[in-house]
Design a binder for these strands. Structure first.
Lengths: 212, 212
DNA sequence: CGTCAAATTGAATGGGGTCAAGCGGCGTGG
DNA sequence: CCACGCCGCTTGACCCCATTCAATTTGACG
């Protein structure tokens, strides 16, 4: 077990270029990973919910290529990359397990790419919501989610303006797919939501983590 | 070394759902990896050039979640996943190396996500070209690239209509950034191209592979 | 030279971006 | 406790860029 600690809303867990090379598991709260472009725009690469990993990119070079910011007060668990590599060498099956985790981590950004290749804003938002639903493990129970992020971050993740995200949510609400009130979203018609998202049901292993 | 063989243009190297679990290295030619959505649309997840790996997603579950199609007559080298896992267990440093390769593979889809989060079509096309330039190792020499894929595949990769790709290319040509003739593209002003792409220069290791 | 696929170009439409105003919750301070 | 102000979300109006449909050109190959 790595050592656990907390950070508060708005704080950075690590920044692009940090070379300390650590991997983190989210225990509670939520984070986003972001990349800042040359012209100062902030791209949201992913959201990281309790039970998921982040910082995997540092396994390659030892350096992080994104910044991780807490969306709320958050508890994480820290694992040094070197320790992981060493221990993988010593304990073969740990190494194999790591390979599997990393391999399926490719799926995380696959989801993001799939999102962004959708043409209609409503599809992206629907797919985004459905993805969250699955990752929170709340499928099949008319669940009400609390989004840990604001409209602006959703937009920067989906490649949409924040106003478009808002409009899409109202449209989905008018179609009786969801019930929105601020950051609280109740899913009324999970099936139809998935159909709008047009998800190719892939052989989904347990939702462990996300890219970055 | 895995065994090498060739496939011809249009053939599939593997399909979504295949569980044989193999990883491939491209020796010559080129491939695309695609995902077909519920409504029958084809999303291009990535292109795979000589020297790059593909099929890494099968390391996680043993099953591929995308289809790989040859864009031209192509030579590949095949590695069984089980063999890799076993040998990683036996030879510690191989396992560590694999972790590094996989970790940096996250970068591949990072590039794609960055592409898709750009708002202007020209930026996407410029970044796409620059990415190809780097991956072909032809930076800094007014090089002329031969695109292994058609406009339609470029569009499906960039989230644009094929006509938009065509128009963007002509616009970049009018701005004297490139010279286009069918699938042959000569880069005239590499710096300005990179500036339009607004690439956040990340600590880029050797361009080994791409997602999927 | 004819055929077919790929690429370019044109014109019209529409979805989403942008700018701007209005609304509502929440915390702070009087 | 209430008023104010801030911030995030929503809604409206307008416009632009990319999509779409369609026609034409180019190029490869028989």
């Amino acid at each position: 077990m790595g050592k656990a600690f907390g950070i508060s809303r708005g704080d950075s867990l690590f920044r692009a270029g940090d070379v300390h090379g650590r991997v983190y598991a989210v225990r509670s709260g939520a984070l986003k990973t972001i990349a800042v472009t040359a012209d100062g725009e902030e791209h949201v690469l992913g959201f990281h919910l309790p039970g998921e990993l982040l910082g995997l990119d540092s396994l390659g070079t030892g350096a992080h290529c994104a910044e991780a910011v807490a969306l709320a007060d958050t508890q994480v668990c820290e694992f040094p990359v070197q320790g992981i590599l060493n221990r993988s060498a010593a304990v073969p099956e740990l190494g194999a397990k790591m390979l599997q985790v990393l391999g399926s981590s490719a799926l995380g950004s696959r989801v993001h790419v799939d999102l962004l290749l959708r043409r209609q804003a409503d599809e992206r938002v629907a797919m985004f919501l459905y993805d969250l639903l699955v990752r929170y493990g709340r499928e099949g129970s008319n669940p009400s989610l609390i989004l840990p992020m604001g409209r602006e971050d959703v937009g920067r993740y989906l490649g949409l303006a924040l106003e478009t995200v808002s409009r899409s949510l109202t449209r989905l609400q008018e179609d009786a797919l969801i019930e929105v009130s601020g950051r609280s979203v109740r899913v009324l018609d999970e099936d139809r939501l998935r159909r709008i998202a047009m998800l190719p049901d892939m052989p989904s292993g347990p939702p462990l983590e996300q890219q970055a």
